[in-house]
Amino acid sequence: MYTQFFGNFLLSKGVISAEELVEAMKKKADVHLKLGTIAIHEGMLTASEVDNIVIMQTHEDKKFGELAIEHGYLTEEQVQVLLDNQKPDYLLLGQILIEDGKLTNSDFENLISDYQSQTEIFDLEADVSQHEMVHKLLADFCQFDDPKTTEHATEYLTLLFNNLIRFIGNDFTLLDPISCKEYPTNYCIAQHISGKIAIQAAMDMEPEAAISFASRYAHEAFTEFDEYVKASLEDFLNLHNGLFNVNMSNSRSIELSLCPPEAHSKDVLDFQKTSYIFPVIFPFGTIHFVLAF
């Protein structure tokens, strides 16, 4: 989950542009995390020590770990710990930006420190942290009438981001939400949840992005914006909202109803309540989730 928030953090700091972020995200699948990046994150090496070892590598044909041990920066045990430990996914994004010359190791070291203190992430208990991160995102950018609405919105969005990771992929970044009263659509699927909790949910994207989104969801190689692509988008939103209803029923004994999803194209969605656009950037395009709680 951290990559999704780390990208937005870098954007908000003005460290990179949205285009640079998308380019870096496209490379993620082909890049492996380096020991130096992990060592900076774990606080075992400083950025300047990593720089020194990288310079040594240009003179000697040896691995980073070997040189770090030979020159007394790390012990064998420490190298093994770095290799064995679970690594947060956002490190890869940072490393790609370093390799692309957008960041130095020193910038990265400072940004990690800022990011960790801002988000107070010090462990990798993902479920707890995701919930807290979403809660913070909503608290910073959204205004709801009561704490219960905030809690339901947090649960809805935490599940949404989990379902995006589960069914589409984890290579996305969340941008800060924007409030709106109406929304002009590209190609949009909307669905209402009704009952004790009422949610208007919509997801909107360009047809090209829809083809990629649908291909990932359905595990098919769609090439045209056809009925299968449209059905895939409806299926995703319907599945997500259905799972939300199941969670609400199981954990809070709240029974909700779901209307069939509706497609909108080049029209305007009106919302009775203040709604929020949650932009989600994937390498293939941006998805706007428009939600009114």
């Binding site: 319907n238 997500h240 909202n241 799972l243 209803n245 199941v246 199981n250 779901l258």
Partner: peptide, 8 residues
């Protein structure tokens, strides 16, 4: 066959 598998 549904995504809405609530108890009710």
């Amino acid at each position: 066959v549904s995504s809405v598998g609530t108890q009710s």
